[in-house]
């Protein structure tokens, strides 16, 4: 690990300002996906800004009937929140499908959104990787790609976003609130937050230098049946091969987002019009233009079959 200086920020504005002054700085909250990368010298911050003293750990009602989740709310506490369990069970289920009890106790709402990919070639510093070292090439294209992206990928990168939480938030139309170094704040719809790899896979979201996530808001509860189904190589503590987050209303309409298939939580709103006609047409629309390769082609059928299962579960629970 490279040496770094360390400070504890007292306010979101001070944290953002300090990060903007120190281009090599990183915020730390849980640290569960920063410290592992620092040990491998994939992340090399010269300065660490600890934001754990900021009072961003509340879950509050919003005036429009939704909920505002502080950036520092731990994954355990968000999953176990009484109102989240009752009105946004999709979010609880997605959180509980990810990581372990120890990691969920540390990991935060904002940090979960900012997780880096678990592509094995990103982590293997002996191999070229455009995300880790721009311009060096993508080892995954000719490598072991079972876990990797089938849609929205590029010739430069086929990494997936590893989060379960973010997939549920995408289906729930979350908005990300931030504080900027100039003292202003802004709201970013989750659909626009994560970016596709294109030729710049090292850029994963639209945050500006120093910009700090302060909260995630959810609009008023969507009702309907909430199902999160994650398919993985072990029954616990593994990243998704494919996950499906669905909200299905009694009239058959609904929303679907996918995890484990793309560089970001994957949702195609126009595909949702097909929901009353079943999993096949929805999957075809969701995965239109997919570019699977040898080891991950199975994900296309797996998405359809997992969605089929999710729709059956939603119907039987209704």
């Amino acid at each position: 690990m490279r040496p770094f200086s360390y400070e504890r920020a007292a306010t979101p504005a001070a944290a953002a300002a300090s990060a903007a002054r120190n281009p090599g700085a990183k915020f730390v909250a849980g640290g569960t996906n920063l410290l592992d990368l620092m040990k491998l010298e994939i992340e090399k911050p010269a300065h660490i800004i600890d934001i754990n003293d900021l009072t961003l750990n509340k879950i509050e009602a919003t005036p429009d009937g939704g909920v505002r989740i502080g950036a520092l709310v731990r994954n355990t506490d968000l999953a176990a929140d009484t109102r989240v369990k009752r009105e946004y069970p999709l979010l609880s289920r997605a959180l509980l499908a990810g990581a372990t009890g120890q990691l969920r106790n540390s990991a935060t709402t904002a940090g979960n959104l900012l997780q880096r990919t678990r592509c094995p070639y990103f982590y293997d510093t002996a191999q070229p990787c455009n995300k880790r070292d721009p311009g060096t090439g993508c080892s995954a294209l000719q490598g072991f790609s079972r876990q990797l992206a089938v849609v929205g990928s590029s010739d430069a990168c086929i990494a997936t976003h590893p989060s379960d939480m973010a997939v549920a938030m995408r289906a729930l139309d979350a908005t990300i609130e931030t504080a900027l170094a100039d003292g202003t704040s802004r709201n970013i719809p989750i659909a626009d937050f994560h970016t596709l790899p294109g030729n710049t896979p090292h850029i994963e979201n639209g945050l500006k230098p120093g910009e700090l996530i302060t909260a995630v808001t959810l609009p008023k509860p969507p009702g309907g049946m909430h199902v999160y189904h994650k398919v993985r190589d072990r029954s616990s503590y593994a990243f998704a091969l494919v996950s499906v987050a669905a909200i299905v209303q009694r009239d058959g309409s609904g929303r679907v987002a996918l995890g484990g298939v793309a560089h970001k939580p994957w949702r195609v709103e126009s595909a949702e019009a097909e929901l009353p006609r079943g999993a096949k047409p929805v999957s075809e629309r969701l995965l239109a233009g997919a570019r699977p390769i040898r080891d991950n082609e199975f994900k296309l059928m797996l998405v359809q079959r997992t969605l089929e299962r999710v729709l059956l579960d939603a119907r039987s629970a209704a």
Partner: peptide
């Protein structure tokens, strides 16, 4: 490396001592 911090289990390898 699991320990309890403020009564909650965490992995102490992914926590900085200064934190």
């Amino acid at each position: 490396c699991t320990v309890l911090v403020d009564g909650r289990r965490v992995v102490s390898c992914l926590t900085l001592a200064v934190m």
